[in-house]
């Protein structure tokens, strides 16, 4: 682990949604005992498909919802659900979020200036009036909207998708946060604009030293952006490692499939995953079991625990194939054969 204490830490965080209908009451785990850390100035990418729980993680960190179990620590203190207004406001100043959909994340009735200026006013960072207006313009120019003055009085519908997303980023930057949560910030943008938004975020990381949780479904984007990558599947962290390690040397069968699916040519060789099967939510086994090409009988019976890989810094995996081995040493050789 890194030497300094993490800025953000999730400790065994679970999030449960209860579906109540007349006949039955069913429980859906959006997150199951997820543990993650983000160090100061670090970018952690959370990779997963839709329904993997990555957006729920973002909402938890943004305190838009509360965990059902476990704890979230921020800057050495556990987040308290019954936090006072002051503490919550303090948190909101320091942890900001960029949303996925630039079309729905801006309010159609407010100007660009309003969107970017509000956080400044709420947190009383700049006195209202000319100073605030000037700060809004500076922020807009920081995110590449030149000249800022021309954008201030525009409404969202007058902007392109890429420009809207930049306004969203400017708004998140306004209170000068320590942490940015970026929930698939480029997935709704045109291909030609994505890279620039990613680069903008990377620049901000360098110039402002913000930590970032970068959420994406795209491994190559995660690798481009992040220091470390965590791969999530159905609410569980399957594997976590420094970006280069994960890309070069993935251990978990799911990560391998993901990597394969995003690189290899099509139509060569057999279909990659096992037979299609829906997971019974009450199944005690590994969540990836029904689709896993290297599953074993034990995989359907018990959930694998997440464990660090010996001899490798910051690389952990949650897979029976792996932990099955007697010792961590030989575990290295006991990788699943795909």
């Amino acid at each position: 682990m890194s030497s300094s204490p993490p800025l953000i830490e999730l400790r065994n965080v679970s999030k449960v949604f209860v579906n109540r209908s007349l006949r039955q009451r069913s429980v859906v785990y959006a997150l199951r005992e997820v543990s993650l850390t983000i160090a100061r100035g670090e970018v952690l990418a959370l990779v997963g498909e839709s329904g993997s729980g990555k957006s729920t993680t973002a909402q938890l960190l943004a305190r838009l919802t509360h965990p059902s179990g476990g704890e979230i620590w921020f800057d050495g203190r556990a987040i308290n659900r019954q936090a006072g207004a002051r503490e919550l406001r303090q948190y909101r100043r320091r942890v900001q979020m960029i949303f996925q959909d630039p079309f729905s994340s801006l309010n159609a009735v407010h100007t660009v200036g309003y969107h970017v200026g509000r956080p400044l006013a709420i947190h009383r960072l700049v006195p209202p009036g000319r100073a605030l207006a000037a700060q809004v313009e500076t922020l807009l120019e920081t995110v590449g909207l030149h000249p800022g003055r021309e954008f201030v009085s525009k409404f969202p519908h007058q902007l392109s998708g890429g420009q809207r997303q930049r306004v969203g980023i400017a708004r998140a930057l306004a209170p000068n946060p320590d942490v940015l949560i970026a929930d698939e910030p480029t997935s709704m943008l045109d291909v030609s604009l994505r890279l620039d938004v990613m680069n903008l975020l990377l620049d901000l990381r360098t110039t402002r030293k913000v930590s970032m949780l970068y959420i994406t479904h795209d491994l190559s984007g995660a690798n481009y952006m992040a220091d470390r990558i965590a791969v999530m599947y159905r609410g569980t962290i399957m594997e976590e490692a420094p970006a280069d390690v994960l890309m070069k040397d993935p251990v978990h069968p799911y990560t391998r499939l993901l990597l394969d699916a995003s690189t290899a040519d099509f139509g060569n060789g057999p279909s990659v995953a096992g037979p299609l099967g829906a997971l019974d939510p009450s199944s005690p086994g590994c969540p990836f079991y029904p689709r896993c090409p290297s599953r074993m009988p034990v995989c359907s019976e018990t959930r694998p625990v997440s464990a660090w890989i010996a001899d490798e810094a910051e690389h952990r995996v949650s897979c029976h194939r792996y932990h099955d081995a007697e010792s961590p040493k030989t575990g290295r050789d006991a990788q699943p054969k795909v």
Binding site: G161, S192, V197, M198, N199, S220, T263
Partner: peptide
């Protein structure tokens, strides 16, 4: 357009640029 997809083994140290402007 080909350039604007970060390749799988490319980290940000090898910076790529998107296309300026909008369609």
């Amino acid at each position: 357009l080909v350039q604007s997809f970060p390749s799988l083994h490319q980290h940000a140290s090898d910076r790529r640029r998107g296309i300026p402007g909008a369609p």
